[in-house]
């Protein structure tokens, strides 16, 4: 990818052509989020001696896994101009399904994991059908799914946690380490792997291209002969698959499926996506940005905790950061 330099604009009559080509600007956006991450990271490194060390950085990464996974799927939905509020409780439902498959039904771990991820896809498929075929606004459709999934998680589990004590291999998925000698959790590697897949899907495949097109201008995309409804269903289903993966990750890390958790994760995922420079109105965004956004959130949480700032204040600060990040992004677009 080259970034063509524009030294001279075409003929007269072109209204104020931007001096920064699209590609360079996309990079700039990531620089901005990345710069924010560096600043926050450097701040805590100086402020607390307990922050910058292998153990703590590893635990920051581990804490990023669940939000990061959910945020990956949410990125696709938001770029296509939609929203997904169901990923939090959907994740809890998927965790309960993993417990049902593996602990209650005694399925082998790989099969249980596969079915859990597919179940997540099913949640997304229902969202997609509601949005694309029934034309229910995404906010409403996924709000309904948020409630339904949260309820189902409690119903199926009888409101009690399901433990994976019989299958030690399941816990290894998250906190085991396949890198010999290093104490580096697998789940971080898994996040890295699925982030690469998501990145390729978004920037290199027609799925990603159509997500941008639909988010940019749904009607024009439809009139260009693109099957918009079909692609929307696929995009929500994809977000559901990531929800399923997140359900596996969180339950294997905790060693149990907690049916009552999940609520609030969807907002953190959206926050990560937005901090990463993805526009809530669709058509703009990137996977790298989302990862940086998720990292900023977990670095903040971790650093503030190390500095003994109470949990309540952490949320206040996170709120401020979100406004700051989005404002900075808008200011950049105005000047660009």
């Amino acid at each position: 990818m080259t970034t063509p330099s524009v030294t001279e604009q075409g003929q007269a009559g072109q209204p104020r052509p931007s001096l920064v080509p699209a590609r360079l600007r996309k990079r700039l956006q990531q620089f901005l989020a990345f710069g924010g991450l560096i600043v926050v990271f450097a701040f805590f490194s100086i402020a607390s001696p307990n922050f910058f060390n292998y153990g703590n950085v590893t635990s920051i990464l581990l804490a990023t896994v669940v939000i990061g996974t959910l945020a990956l799927g949410t990125t696709f939905v938001i770029i296509s101009g939609g929203i997904d509020l169901s990923v939090g409780t959907g994740m809890a439902l998927c965790a309960v399904m993993a417990g049902t498959f593996i602990t209650n039904l005694g399925m082998p771990v790989p099969l249980g994991v596969l079915l859990t991820v597919l179940f997540g896809g099913l949640i997304g498929l229902v969202n997609g059908l509601n949005v694309a075929l029934l034309k229910v606004p995404p906010f409403i459709a996924t709000l309904a799914m948020m409630l339904a999934a949260g309820g189902l998680a409690l119903v199926i589990s009888d409101s009690t946690p399901i433990y994976f004590s019989d299958t030690p291999g399941y816990v290894e998925i998250s906190i085991g380490s396949i890198i010999p000698g290093a104490d580096f959790p697998n789940s971080v590697l898994i996040l890295a792997a699925i982030a690469i897949i998501a990145g390729v899907l978004l920037s290199r495949t027609i799925l990603g291209r159509f997500a941008f097109s639909i988010g940019s201008n749904e009607e024009a995309t439809a009139l260009s002969g693109i099957k918009v409804r079909q692609w929307k269903i696929i995009i929500y289903t994809l977000a559901g698959l990531f929800t399923g993966i997140a359900g596996v990750m969180i339950s294997s890390r905790l060693g149990s499926a907690q049916p009552g958790t999940g609520l609030g994760y969807e907002l953190q995922a959206i926050a990560a996506v937005v901090i990463g420079g993805t526009s809530l109105s669709g058509g703009k965004g990137s996977i790298v940005g989302t990862l940086i956004g998720a990292l900023i959130i977990s670095v903040l949480n971790n650093g503030l905790q190390i500095m003994s700032i109470p949990q309540e204040w952490q949320n206040v600060i996170l709120g401020c950061v979100i406004v700051l990040a989005v404002y900075a992004d808008m200011a950049r677009q105005r000047t660009a």
Binding site: S213, S216, I226, G283
Partner: peptide
């Protein structure tokens, strides 16, 4: 409103259909 993705690159528009 209906013909172009104005926020996208020229090449993205030409290649879309």
């Amino acid at each position: 409103q209906l013909g172009l993705l104005v926020e996208q690159a020229v090449e993205s528009n030409i290649g879309l259909s």
